[in-house]
């Protein structure tokens, strides 16, 4: 097999393959899922995860880690269910301000040379505190236009899938194919070289963190559009899910080595893994463990491929 297909290609295909295996297993166990309705139900909550994963990917690209994305998405959801509905202009201003704060965090991390894990962990409490101040008890209402967008029934293929494909392709084009994207990735993979070539590392870091903020806002808004009202703790789980999604999709913690298409596939795979376990009627006590096992199997496969790659080189 490796003689005909290079390990590099297998590595790129692995996220797609693991998702395909999960999908087939789901269709076998629950044929009802093989329909527009079924795919929509299984994947519509994956869209906010995909956005959050993309935000995490931006941060991982510049060799940092964002532990605040979950509480940031929660905060954006709270803003979406309060300000954005009651006073739209103020809502938009707050969300733009949030992206500004994200950019500032990126600048702080670069200028003071601080470990991103510590700074973003601190920020996660700030965002959570802001959400609780905004919505002390769960509630609020998402704006009607937002609900209409995320619940929009596109013909033939569910909206969540189309939006995920668009997201993957747009980021792929911007980050993997363009010249600017090469510089952004390079600043994570080999910062000295980029600095020596005359690019500002501060600018690349601020750009990537601002982008992460934008995707976080999109995650929060798409989530609140689906749930129709918010809760300060609504998306705390996204922090770890987004990291798992990036890594599952072929990214690595070394900076610069990421794959936007893989990350979106990774996010969808995580959502599907939950569905599969639910359809298999595994006892709840085992479900969390089983979800972890799926992750480990996929990562183990990748390590095998990496080894083959190293041997081929």
């Amino acid at each position: 097999m490796t003689r005909f297909v290079s390990p590099r290609v297998i590595r790129a295909l692995l996220p797609a393959l693991s998702m395909a295996v999960l999908l087939v297993a789901i269709f076998v166990i629950q044929p009802r899922a093989m329909s527009y309705f079924g795919l929509n139900l299984m994947l519509n909550l994956a869209l906010p995860i995909a956005f959050a994963t993309m935000a995490q990917l931006c941060v991982i690209t510049v060799n940092d880690l964002d532990l605040s994305i979950g509480s940031f998405v929660s905060f954006c959801a709270c803003v979406g269910a309060t300000f954005l509905n009651d006073t739209p202009l103020l809502g938009v201003a707050v969300l733009v301000g949030c992206v500004g704060v994200y950019a500032a965090v990126g600048a702080l991390i670069h200028l003071r040379n601080l470990p991103s894990i510590v700074v973003t962990l601190g920020m996660s409490f700030v965002w959570l505190g802001c959400s609780v101040l905004l919505l002390p008890t769960p509630g609020g209402t998402a704006p009607a236009w937002l609900i209409a967008i995320v619940k929009f029934k596109t013909p033939l293929i569910p909206f969540a899938i189309l939006a995920s494909i668009a997201l993957a392709l747009i980021v792929h084009a911007g980050l993997m194919k363009s010249a600017a994207g090469a510089v952004l990735r390079g600043s994570g993979g080999n910062p000295q070289a980029i600095a020596r070539a005359g690019w500002s590392l501060l600018r690349t870091k601020v750009t990537m963190f601002a982008l992460a903020g934008c995707f976080g806002v999109l995650a929060g808004l798409s989530l609140v559009g689906m749930t129709t009202s918010a809760d300060a703790n609504i998306a705390l789980r996204y922090t770890l899910l987004s990291i798992a999604g990036v890594i599952l999709g072929g990214g690595e913690f070394v900076g610069g080595r990421v794959s936007p298409i893989g990350a979106v596939l990774g996010a969808l795979t995580l959502a599907l893994a939950g569905s599969l376990l639910s359809f298999m009627q595994i006892s709840p006590d085992w479900q969390i463990g089983a979800q972890g096992a799926i992750l480990i199997v996929v990562l183990a496969l990748r390590t095998l491929v990496n080894r083959a790659e190293a041997r081929a080189a």
């Binding site: 689906m226 998306a235 479900q287 979800q291």
Partner: peptide, 20 residues
């Protein structure tokens, strides 16, 4: 039962139950 007392997880669980 969902593992982590998280609303998003339970929402996904309910959607799976609809499909079932």
């Amino acid at each position: 039962t969902t593992g982590e007392n998280q609303a998003t997880e339970q929402a996904a669980q309910i959607q799976n139950l609809i499909l079932q």
